[in-house]
Amino acid sequence: MASGKEIRTQIKSIKNTQKITRAMEMVAASKMRKAQDRMRASRPYADKMHNVIHHLAYAHPEYRHHYLLARENPQRVGYIIISSDRGLCGGLNNNMFKDVLADMRGWREKNIEIDLCTIGQKSSQFFKRFANITAQAVQLGDHPGVADLIGTVKVMLDAYDAGEIDRLFLAYNRFVNTMTQQPVVEQLLPVEPDGKEKELAYHWDYLYEPDAKAVLDGLLVRYIESLVYQGVVENVACEMAARMVAMKSASDNAGDLIDDLQLVYNKARQAAITQELSEIVAGAAAV
């Protein structure tokens, strides 16, 4: 039977753990609010960008950019995988990795090679074992900027330009609400028309300055970057939300443990007192 002192030490150590998890919960909660603000702040850009790309599909340009053209029979595909840098956020990363692996298995069965580009420490560590990582960005922190992503995205776009990969996918966690984060795998390239387009009555095209190719190159690169950035920002919000929930349940569990241990401790103490009393009584009777 555990002695009173042992149990007391146990309770104390769990209380310390609980303090840590509670602090992490509160930190995550406040960071989540900021991350959500950033997510909202970047939405107008993504929307406007989407509009422009959409208009482009309406227009009848004399020049079709190769990002907009479907490629038949892919030989090799690329993934950009966005994860968090740190753990302790429940099953957030692993759930997404599972989805990505399932997706990748589909390609492998068709003998299609896979190149990866990872953003965030966790995905770098995880996918090191599964595929060829051509670029990575880690330690973006809680305030990722577009500037941090330009390099990684460019590696993949270059590979696409050179014909090394024929499809590019983006995997990240979409922020639905605090309790729900949804892992998604989206196709970035070639840019897929969203099916809502209808033929316009009249044909028009943009004036391109200086020329169509230069403008569209710049525009589409930014479009891809904005999608990746949006993914990163959502992922940060997801990470914070998931961590908050995970830490809350950890704190709750610690509370339950403490209650249980307290009960055990009280019983042990009571037993010791009873024993002592009966010893005294027995001793007195013997005299």
Binding site: M49, C117, S124, V146, A147, G151, D158
Partner: peptide, 24 residues
């Protein structure tokens, strides 16, 4: 107007790409 947040130039982008690759 879709404004950039970072200063963009072809060689700067190239450098960033190189860095990402080296990292991997």
């Amino acid at each position: 107007v879709l404004s950039d947040t970072a200063v963009r130039a072809a060689d700067l982008d190239e450098a960033a790409a190189l860095e990402a690759r080296n990292h991997a």
